[in-house]
Design a protein around this nucleic acid. Structure first.
Lengths: 147, 147
DNA sequence: GCTTGACCTCAAGTCGACTTGAACTTGCAC
DNA sequence: GTGCAAGTTCAAGTCGACTTGAGGTCAAGC
């Protein structure tokens, strides 16, 4: 397995060097040692980073991810995955309703959206108790690696 | 139209009094005057708050919302609504893929998720360029009004 | 021997949407 | 006239996920 410097990892993974240090501090990834002061990583860190990025896009928090990694991802996180799938499902349903009503509202001839029947429906939809669980950082990162 | 104190508005809308002050400061809502030091609101603020809450659930930022309110919601925001619908649509598609693969992964017999074909697929899916635009606060608020 | 560039640490800053705290004023009840 | 709840202002704190800045180290190349 080849060894990589932090800059190389950043370049290949698209994750900023500062973020890599941050992740290491949080226990999400590990460097295999130092060359002088500089961290040295194994290439397998790239897969781990892909997994982390993926999990983030699934709206897992870094803390969730850290826990899953710590637990060696077994039975317990199958439950987690399933729960997250359910959560996403609820979110998707809400967003679908919202999208449809938004489309209607966008072409609604009523003078003000407050008077628009689509908006009225939306208001009622969204004020029901069953709010979806928060999706969040469904990506981020506009800037390239490091600065 | 009845007049309401901030506490009453908070109770009826489910929006914390501190948040109401914050919204007023940001120009999202207006109080109609003061009784002594205390703000007085018209009941129509309740509809506005419902609209704000709705827009937030549609992932509009407070700044977006403030702008729409300022512009008196006309043609220009029909475009905005439509854009947002498109954005939601992209998000929904991404989330749907994610959810499906999560379900598969949850029952995947592979020892580690890194070896699981579902995860491999997900990794590829999510590393494509077209990341969805961030959905976000699809609700919030666990605590009741004020503190 | 000196610069350059890649890397380091540690503390502090950023963003959005609020919340919290301290210190103060009011209206109303007793 | 006193006490209290409900309101006020303004500054600062919170949360998650990072980024930025200052100041330092180190190997390589001229």
């Amino acid at each position: 397995m080849k060894e990589l410097g932090i800059g190389e990892v950043a370049r290949r993974s698209g994750v900023a060097a500062s973020t890599l240090r941050y992740y290491e501090e949080k226990g999400l990834i590990r460097s295999v040692g130092r060359r002088g002061l500089s961290r040295v990583f194994n290439t397998d860190v790239l897969e781990k980073l892909a997994l982390i990025t993926l999990a983030q896009s699934l709206t897992f928090s870094l803390e969730d991810i850290a826990q899953m990694i710590a637990q060696g991802h077994t039975a317990l996180d199958r439950q987690r995955l399933s729960d997250k799938a359910d959560e996403l499902d609820r979110t998707i349903k809400q967003l679908s309703i919202a999208r449809d009503e938004l489309r209607r509202a966008a072409v609604c001839p009523a003078a003000s959206h407050v008077e628009c029947p689509s908006f009225q429906r939306l208001l009622k939809e969204t004020s029901r108790e069953d709010r979806p669980h928060t999706p969040s950082a469904l990506q981020r990162r506009e800037a390239g690696p490091d600065g």
